[in-house]
Each structure stands twice: as C-alpha cells, then as structure tokens.
Computed example of a mutant assay.
Amino acid sequence: MSLTVIPTALPEVLILEPKVFGDERGFFMESFNARVFEEATGVHRTFVQDNHSRSALGVLRGLHYQIRNPQGKLLRVTSGEVYDVAVDLRRSSRNFGKWVGVMLSEANKRQLWVPEGFAHGFVVTSASADVLYKTTDYWYPEHERTLLWNDPALAIDWPLSGPPTLAQKDQKGARLEAVETFS
C-alpha cells in the first residue's frame, strides 16, 4: 500500500491519500494497513472501534471529544462529501484553540487523522454522506464533551448555506473559555 501524507496547519492532524487503483471496472484501495499507517505517519496506535454514520445535507455533528479515555480518529467518507474539522484542545500546545478544516469525499478518498486531545466535527455538504471512522479508544458517554460548533472564539468557517441541523447536545455545546480541556 502506498500512502501520501499531507500536513495541515495543525502538525498533528494529517490528511492521508491512499493509492487507488482504478479502471473501467471500478477501483481498489487498501483503506487501512497498520504497518503502512505507522511508517507513513510516525503514529503508532491501536484502533479498537469502527463507527459508521449517515447524515443528510446540512447536518452538523460536533465538535466532540472525550475528556477521559480520549479518542484518536481516522476518518473517511464512503458516500457523499463532508467538511471535517479538528480543534486543538491541549492547553500546553502553541496551537490551543486553533482549528483546521478539510473536505473529505467519496470522490477524493482522502482520510483524516485526528489525534487524541482534539475536538472533532463535520458538516455534510452533499445530499447525504456516510462517514466511517476508526477510534483508538471506546466510546464512554459519561466522558464525552461538546465544544460549541459556532463559538466566536473559534471562528470556524463552516460551508453552510443556512442553519445546520444539530443534535440537542451540539446545540448546547460549551464555549472554548468554559470547556474542559487537556493539559
């Protein structure tokens, strides 16, 4: 497997482009290989859970993280397109409170590595989207926290054409100044 790693404005958040073999029959790609992932990124993690979400146009999920048992996430879109965002919540980081956004789609087959210590969310920019992601720890609802998606302190430039569709927990997210953070 060949994997191209593209750095982002947040050095720990990485865009991954797998090698895709395609012809008139369709395509083949190896979506994950632990050895290649580690060699290409320098990141050694064990993934323990795979998640699959389907969302409609304008659905915004996030910005989520776990304050205990933090999860690193490796995300990809298998159908549709999303604008995916990671926010650095590590107080000791020079990038604390900064964010990066990346378009992930069925067409570009890009993946995004979001390490532990970051909040994560996405908005669907196509009619619908299926997002698959691997996590480095299990989901513990009692430790899940939500950073307010539209906090003015973050000034995330979400590609929205109207108000997003939000879950109740995402409507009630905490602002950066009040949210629990990492050391």
Score class of each variant (00 low, 15 high):
E30Y: 13
L63K: 11
S128I: 01
S161Q: 06
S2E: 10
A129M: 05
L160H: 13
G80C: 06
V59Y: 08
A167R: 06
P152R: 04
F27A: 11
G22M: 04
F27H: 15
F21N: 09
D137T: 01
L16K: 08
L74P: 03
W99A: 14
L147Y: 04
H44A: 14
T181E: 01
L176Q: 02
A40D: 11
G117L: 04
R25V: 14
G72I: 02
T78F: 03
A155L: 08
Q66S: 00
E180D: 14
N150R: 13
S31A: 13
Y138C: 01
Y83K: 03
Q171K: 13
V36K: 10
V85N: 03
T125Y: 03
G101C: 01
P164I: 09
L166V: 03
Y140C: 07
R25I: 14
M29W: 12
L3W: 02
V20I: 12
F122R: 14
I156A: 05
D84Y: 09
V43Y: 12
L60I: 05
A174R: 11
S55N: 04
R76N: 03
W158C: 05
G80E: 04
E17S: 09
E24H: 15
L132S: 02
L16G: 00
D137R: 02
N51G: 04
E81G: 00
R61T: 06
M1F: 13
K19E: 07
L112Y: 11
L63T: 14
E39D: 15
R76K: 12
G58A: 00
V87R: 07
T125Q: 00
V100Q: 07
R94D: 11
P141Y: 10
S161C: 03
Q171R: 12
A178C: 09
W99H: 14
F122G: 11
S161V: 09
R25K: 15
F27R: 09
P159Y: 15
W99E: 12
F27Y: 15
F32V: 05
D151F: 07
S2C: 04
P164M: 07
A107F: 02
K134M: 07
A129Q: 00
P70R: 00
V13M: 09
P163K: 03
L154N: 07
V82I: 15
V85G: 09
S2T: 10
Y65D: 08
A178L: 12
A40H: 09
I6S: 12
F122D: 10
E12D: 13
T181F: 06
K172C: 10
Q71W: 00
S126V: 12
S128G: 04
H64V: 05
R94A: 14
E17R: 14
